[in-house]
Design a protein around this nucleic acid. Sequence first.
DNA 1: CAGTATCCAAAGGGATACTG
DNA 2: CAGTATCCCTTTGGATACTG
Lengths: 135, 135
Amino acid sequence: MNCKPIRTEEHKKDLMAVQDSMDALQGKWKISIISSICYYNKRRFSDILNDVIGISNKMLSKELKELEINKLIKRTVLDTQPITVQYELTEHGKSLQTIINNLKDWGIKHRKEIIGNNSETITHTEAENVLVENM
Amino acid sequence: MNCKPIRTEEHKKDLMAVQDSMDALQGKWKISIISSICYYNKRRFSDILNDVIGISNKMLSKELKELEINKLIKRTVLDTQPITVQYELTEHGKSLQTIINNLKDWGIKHRKEIIGNNSETITHTEAENVLVENM
DNA sequence: CAGTATCCAAAGGGATACTG
DNA sequence: CAGTATCCCTTTGGATACTG
C-alpha cells in the first residue's frame, strides 16, 4: 500500500509502478489468454480463440498485440500453407506466474470475505474469462 | 498463471479468483484513493479529492462506493455541521498491502524490461494517478 | 461538505464481412 | 489461418450545475 507520505517523488513512482502492473494485466481477456498460452506452452491464434470462451477475433488480436508490446509473449509466424502464428510466453511473461498467484490467493481470500455476509455484492463480472466447457 | 490443464473446474476457479482481485483494484483511480486513505489513516471526501490529482467528484464518489462494496474501506458519517464523511481502510483493505507491494515490485521489474530497448512502448497511462505536486 | 443529476464526447467492444 | 475493416450500440468519464 506504500503508506509513505504522499506528495513525494518516491510515492508517486510507487503508484506508477503498481499502475504499470495493472495496465499490463488489464483487459477483459488478458489473464485467460496468458493462461491458455502458458498451459500449452505454444499456442496458435485460432486455438486461443477456442480456449477463451466468448472472445472475438478482434479482441483477441488487440489484446495479443498489447501483450506482445509489453514483451510478455512472443509471436512467431510459421511458413506453413496457409501461415500459422504461434504465441508463447517470454521469460518476462513467465515471471508473471508469481504475481498472478498472488492475485489468485488474495482473490480467494477476498471472495470469502465478501461472501461472508452477502454473496451478491461481489463485483466479479460473471461469465467472463471462462474457458471452454466442452472438449 | 496456473499452468494446470485448462478446461477444468479448478482452473476456472483460479482464473476467477485472479479476476476478482483485478476487479477490486481496477478503476483509473482506485490505487491512488486507497493510498491516500492509507497514509492519512482517516480521510475525508474533499481531502481525497485534493490528494488525487485530476479525479472528479463523480469518479471519486463512484470508486469509493465500489471500494466500500468490496469491504476494503469503511465509510463513517460524522454529524458535524455541515456533515463530513470519513473513510478508512478495513482490516480486509489493509490486507491489500502485500498484493499492492507485489504489484509494485513486478511493475518496477516490468518497467526496466520495457525501457531496456524502447522506452516508448510502455503502456502506462501517463499523468494518471499522480498526487498533488504543490503542498 | 458530500455527494447526485444531466449533458455529451470519446472509447470500448460485439457482429459480420473481407483479405493475403 | 490470422488477422483487418466497418458498422453501430453500449459504456465510460469529464464538465457543470444542483441539493440536503
